[in-house]
Each structure stands twice: as structure tokens, then as C-alpha cells.
Design a protein around this nucleic acid. Structure first.
Length: 216
DNA sequence: GGCCAGGACACCA
DNA sequence: TGGTGTCATGGC
């Protein structure tokens, strides 16, 4: 690990923010929509997720009361553009069942949970893993947790800030223990990683114009 | 036509 | 714990 990870992580953030500016995440009109998007975007291009969400909006299914009632097969057809549509339809319904079972379908009640408790419960839902759970916590519940994704891992390992095989929790701790991060910063930081990842930190690196080329 | 995208899970050793 | 196969659409 780098001698001063806190300094490097702050330097990376400053560099990305000054280059790309605020990213205005999460693009959604409600907290429930954020949650659905977090599930639908798993290993999938956001453009495809937008199509799926547009279908759900068209069908008036961006509200819990309607989503939970729609037949799985119809739901799968609507979210088809996001890929893995059978699995994702099941995962959306799994979340609905969870919301009903634990909070009687009341999202506000869910958001009253303590962060650690809610994270643990979300992880118990089949189809919600660490990144999806943390995306929900950060972007829907507005808790100061850092979301780690494939880009985060790639950027960090290429700059020598973590091992390529570092675990999710390991990388997350790197940020949460070294940064004086609040909700807003973690929000931007994750989104900025996605941005630089799309443009430069691709599987085949495009480092030439990368704002991080002289960092780390 | 192959590679990749804002992962998670089952199964195996 | 760690590695591998599976799920699938759409852009480039």
C-alpha cells in the first residue's frame, strides 16, 4: 500500500472533481426508483437501465404498491433491455417481499434503520450484494458509505493503492478510514470513478489524457 | 463479431 | 477464501 493513502485518495478526488465537476448522481426521481436502478444496473450499461426504467415508468410500476403485484413474466419483459432480465425481475420482487416483510411496505420505515443494521438486512436479500446494498445506502438512504465498483478497483490497483485481488470490504475501508468523507463527497467520488473509468481506466488503459496520469 | 458494461450467486475444491 | 460458470441486452 502507498505510504500515505489518505493523501493519495484526496489527491485523486481533487483531480477528478476539478476535471469533471459534479456528476449529479443518482439520476432518479424517487428513492424507490434509485433502489430499482441499483438492482437493474448490475453489470450493465446505464443506457440499457434507462430503457428498462422508462418501460417501468410507462407501466406505472415505479411505485411499490404496483410493482409488487405485477406478474414476474411481465416484469421480466419490461426490464429486458437491462439484460439478465429474468434474474433482475426476480430480484426486484425479492426486494418488494423484503420491504413488505420487514417494514410492511413502508420505505420510510426502512430508512429509519441504523446504517449497519440496514446494510446487513439488505445483504440478506437474494440478489443484493455489497455494491448494490451500498448504492442503496448512499444514494437512496443518504448514508456516508463508500461504494466500490469495478472501476474503483481498477483505478486503485493501477495506481498502486490496492492489490488487484483486494476484497470489497478492504477497498471500502481504505476510503472510509482514510477520508473525512461525508455523503456528498462519497456520492461524487464514486460517480467520478465511473466517469474516469469509462473514459480512461478501461480494460485496455487509455492513460494519455487521463487526469490521474500523474497521480499515485 | 468480439468485447464490455455502474454484480451476484451457485458450485466446487 | 478463491476460482469459474451463468445470467443477457445493446453500443462500439
Amino acid at each position: 500500500m502507498a505510504p500515505d493513502p489518505a493523501h493519495h485518495l484526496q489527491e485523486i478526488y481533487d483531480s477528478l472533481f476539478s476535471t469533471y465537476g459534479p456528476q449529479h448522481w443518482w439520476p432518479a426521481k424517487s428513492r424507490f426508483e434509485v433502489i430499482l436502478g441499483a438492482i437493474l444496473t448490475q453489470n450493465t450499461n446505464w443506457k440499457n437501465v434507462e430503457r428498462a426504467i422508462a418501460n417501468l415508468r410507462e407501466a406505472d410500476l415505479l411505485k411499490y404498491e404496483n410493482l409488487r403485484e405485477v406478474p414476474s413474466q411481465r416484469l421480466a419483459e419490461l426490464v429486458r433491455p437491462s439484460g439478465y432480465f429474468n434474474i433482475k425481475a426476480e430480484r426486484l420482487h425479492a426486494f418488494c417481499r423484503f420491504l413488505q416483510r420487514e417494514y410492511k411496505g413502508n420505505l420510510r420505515k426502512m430508512f429509519r434503520e441504523k446504517t449497519e443494521d440496514l446494510r446487513e438486512k439488505l445483504l440478506s436479500v437474494k440478489g443484493i450484494g455489497p455494491e448494490t446494498a451500498d448504492s442503496i445506502l448512499l444514494y437512496a438512504a443518504k448514508r456516508p458509505v463508500f461504494v466500490v465498483d469495478a472501476y474503483t478497483r481498477r483505478v486503485l490497483s493501477r495506481h498502486g493503492l490496492c492489490r488487484e485481488t483486494a476484497s470489497y470490504e478492504e477497498i471500502q475501508a481504505l476510503f472510509m478510514e482514510n477520508l473525512d468523507g461525508d455523503v456528498q463527497m462519497f456520492n461524487e467520488y464514486h460517480a467520478l470513478f465511473v466517469q474516469v473509468g469509462k473514459l480512461h481506466c478501461t480494460p485496455k488503459p487509455r492513460c494519455a489524457e487521463c487526469p490521474l496520469s500523474d497521480v499515485g
